[in-house]
Write a protein that binds this DNA or RNA. Structure first.
Lengths: 187, 187
DNA sequence: ACCTGAACACCGTTCAAGT
DNA sequence: ACCTGAACACCGTTCAAGT
């Protein structure tokens, strides 16, 4: 809310940060489609051309946002692993889904087809780093370990996406955390 | 390819169909973001305002496209169930993922956050119908049946989405159908 | 080095007017 | 009833010019 009032000169590299901060707010409020570069410039109090000193295009801005999303996601995953919970897999699954629900628009952007990972090595690296911790939980060396890890990943990711889309209906009085736990418990 | 050459008068309700057909082609070629209403009108050989006689907005056109996607998906699922395969759950899972991979852009549109199902009863109904068959496989009446059904659904849907996004890497020489089967087999 | 102002080539959408 | 032509209010992006 203070971003739109600031008229200080952005001459020390802070415009990039100010743009990313404001963009995250706009993303959470209006979704990816509602995140306009001109709106963003307006919100930060700068001319429509100014963002182009810091981002090549709107897509590049979105990519930077998605990369920070993966970094936060990585941190959340590592924090769970570091806390050494009794059931690591279940705890990471819970954290995975919770992150998606708590950061809906950002999570969707991280997996948006608009940002093709093929042409964006920075995004691919950030995504790979995020899933590295997840892979270690069950992976091991055996082939069956790999399949089990992929199956667990797919289940948790699918659960996150379906909940995000409102496809899974909660039963009256049902706790969402409990539902997540029950579904993850179904090995 | 013949669509752009037609200059016949669209005066008998065929413009709506022509628009949807051309839109599906554009969607598959350029993705949702590349599907412009003016481009579409150009491709069909009609003025920029003409589509508005048949669709309230670009979003309404996308919704109609998504609804046909769910209808095709429903048909594919019902076909599998009707063929009475030995392992119904595995067969439906295979068909689910195969549909996603064979109709990537359409599948993404069906689950696009751009189309909020809350405000679009037609889309919600089409989606519910599509998943009804899937639910019957494992659902039953018991609470554990519901959880098992949701877990299977989440796993298959997550697998489809992660494959679509290129997040799951195939090992050298690995067959994708076999991978799908192995992951679905992990109950 | 970083930002402004004005422009370019587009959009989606509306509306009078044509047939 | 269905479509056209022209317009409106926007976009993302570029580029000369300012400081």
């Amino acid at each position: 809310m203070s971003t739109s009032l600031s008229n200080a000169p952005y001459h020390h590299g802070n415009l990039r940060h100010a743009l990313l901060d404001a963009a995250l707010l706009m993303l959470q409020r209006d979704g990816e489609a509602g995140l306009g570069l001109r709106d963003l410039a307006r919100a930060v109090g700068v001319s429509p051309a100014a963002p182009y000193r810091h981002f090549d295009s709107r897509a590049a801005l979105l990519e930077a946002l998605a990369v920070t999303g993966f970094q936060r996601f990585t941190a959340a995953m590592n924090a769970v692993a570091a806390s050494q919970p009794p059931d690591l897999l279940a705890a990471m699954g819970q954290a995975y889904v919770r992150f998606a629900l708590d950061n809906a628009a950002l999570f969707r952007l991280m997996f948006s087809p608009q940002l093709k990972r093929d042409n964006r090595p920075g995004l691919r690296m950030a995504a790979d780093a995020a899933f590295a911790t997840l892979r270690q939980v069950r992976d091991g060396d055996s082939a069956s370990g790999r399949i089990a890890a992929l199956a667990a990943w797919a289940k948790v990711h699918g659960l996150a996406v379906l909940l995000l889309d409102g496809q899974i209906a909660l039963q009256p009085g049902e706790d969402i955390e409990a539902l997540i736990g029950a579904i993850i418990g179904q090995h």
